[in-house]
């Protein structure tokens, strides 16, 4: 379960250009990229998901080349099969909770029907205790519930890698601790590899198995490695 990332990208910034030059290789089940805002964490995550194309470098995940500038390989985002948990959850406001969870189960031109949800969607709604909220719209539920919907939506299509962008930043502290435990339990039960970016030391403490520190677009070594191998 190795992730091999070596990406380079220069962005025009408001004051000076920002250079991302990130290189790491990890085989752990829970990788945390830790750093302040503006350090290039989000850009790294977006590049791995295929939402941003690096200028140079390569991304190899589980032996499959997703990006290689020299070989002109760039797998489009839909083909990478990653689960992505956005910081603000990015739930579709025109769809119900059930439709949001079923969204990635079909790639056609029509949204899932509100009435008959696929079995896999029902399974995830139940697993994340959302079955009572199926017909609600995202703005009608709480922040913690929204996050569970986003997680169910990301997990339903069986991703091979889960990417998490500051997943707990928008929650209040007591809920944060509960959701960390919830996520940890879910991750180990599914055996799903995850890569999380955060600026919160408590996230690192609770979830980091292999921790990389990022500053000014560069990796500054392992911040902490717990020694448990995945």
């Amino acid at each position: 379960m190795a992730i091999d990332v070596d990406i380079h990208r220069t962005l025009a910034g408001p004051h000076r250009p920002f250079t991302l030059d990130v290189r790491f290789r990890a085989e752990h089940a829970r990788i945390v990229l830790y750093g302040p805002s503006g350090s290039g964490k989000s850009l790294t995550l977006r590049a791995i998901a295929g939402l941003v194309t690096p200028d140079r470098g390569r991304i190899v995940v589980h032996g499959q080349t997703w990006f290689d500038a020299d070989q002109r390989i760039c797998l489009p985002a839909p083909a990478r099969r990653v689960g992505y948990l956005f910081q603000d959850y990015a739930l579709f406001p025109h769809l119900t909770v059930g439709q949001n969870v079923a969204f990635g189960l079909g790639a056609g031109w029509r949204n899932p029907s509100r009435r008959s949800l696929p079995e896999a969607a029902r399974h995830w709604l139940e697993a994340l205790e959302l079955d009572g909220l199926t017909d609600r719209y995202p703005w009608q539920i709480s922040g913690g519930q929204q996050q569970r919907v986003a997680l169910a939506r990301a997990l339903a299509p069986h991703p091979q890698l889960l990417l998490l962008d500051e997943p707990f930043a928008a929650l209040d502290p007591p809920l944060r601790a509960r959701m960390r435990e919830h996520l940890l339990a879910l991750q180990s039960r599914l055996g799903l590899q995850m890569l999380m970016i955060t600026h919160d030391p408590s996230d690192v403490e609770a979830l980091g198995e292999y921790v990389l520190e990022i500053r000014d677009g560069r990796i500054h070594g392992d911040a902490r490695t717990s020694g448990i191998t995945g």
């Binding site: 295929g50 603000d88 990015a90 579709f92 990635g104 031109w109 990301a154």
Partner: peptide
């Protein structure tokens, strides 16, 4: 339309055309 929503749809496996019909157009 929040571009993040279109990104979310792409990551969930949708082609650009499908993203247009399922996310951008309805919103």
């Amino acid at each position: 339309v929040d571009p993040q929503l279109e990104s979310a749809a792409r990551v969930l496996g949708l082609s650009r055309l499908a993203v247009f019909f399922r996310v951008s157009l309805p919103l």
